[in-house]
Design a binder for these strands. Structure first.
Lengths: 98, 98, 98, 98
DNA sequence: CCCTGAGGCTTCGTAC
DNA sequence: GTACGAAGCCTCAGGG
């Protein structure tokens, strides 16, 4: 079996597929490395802030608030969409008797 | 090894532990059975509703809206708590010069 | 026959339909609440197990295996039923509901 | 020495502190945005892989294994460092940053 | 067959 | 430093 996935179709055969697989793995690992680097940068910022006397926990709270505010706005739009969608499909409670 | 978990401490030994394990499994399986029963009840309600001519998808939307509304309210309280917490810990931007 | 219960797509009109809709929503929400309660009970069991030193993840795996075994058994029974049906035989027993 | 940069718990007072706080928040939010962008890139790679017929779950397992191997290797290096440190030896090389 | 949504696993931050 | 709790990520099941 030249392919990795047990349950998958077997795309192409031989070296091409292997090269493709290696490429996928390399790209993901590179991206994850970058992601980790950024996470470390964030830690550095907090460490610097702490070193300057700031209450890091409080700053995290602020960031959380800002994030929640923004997601709340998005959620409100979501509710509106869902609501309109539901309205478009309902009997609409009309009192047309019969 | 009388215990299941590889990485766990090994609580007690012999038959008592086994009985306890069996009890845990039995309780969980019973509860999951009950849970599945309720899920089936819900399906029945929807099936009945569909049989009565209702647009089940629309009703699901309504339920979703009601759920979102309520979680939005809870989230608002969350924001308030978080905000108060942040306020309690911050320099408060006072302009007291020095 | 009233305005509900027939095959029309949308039971418009009248308080009865509204009441019926409210009933559907109430029943589903009640059932979902019960479902959540049971889910919480399951969490409690696991928490207690963890407190007693058990490896919860391993226990979950056991439960999963038991479930697979059981569904395989059910599958076997299904095959049996199919064969019996094909042979014009009646099921020997109804399962008693609890 | 200004009002920031010392060891006081709370750099109160003045616009400089506020500016510094704003800067911290902005930097963290920017970095988190970048982080999210990279996470999305990773998703894209997996989506493309899936589109080419690969078993994404299997690839994830490979990545996990490679990560474990690597951290075991790092652990081994850590042990080496520890030994060398205990022996009063200096590290042979610094890792070049990229 | 796709897609959304719930559930479980893992990691990171916090409190003791 | 250890253990608890929360947040993000991945998986899988159910519905459209």
């Amino acid at each position: 079996m030249t392919q990795v996935g047990h349950n998958s179709n077997k795309p192409r055969a031989g070296g091409v597929a292997v090269d493709q697989l290696k490429s996928i793995i390399a790209r993901v690992e590179k991206l994850e490395e970058e992601k980790k680097g950024i996470a470390d940068d964030i830690k550095d910022v907090f460490a610097e802030a702490r070193g300057n006397g700031w209450d890091v926990k409080a700053i995290r709270q602020i960031l959380k608030i800002r994030k929640m505010d923004q997601s709340e706005r998005e959620e409100a739009e979501n509710i509106l969409d869902t609501y309109m969608s539901a309205l478009g499909m309902l009997p609409l409670f009309e009192e047309d008797g019969e």
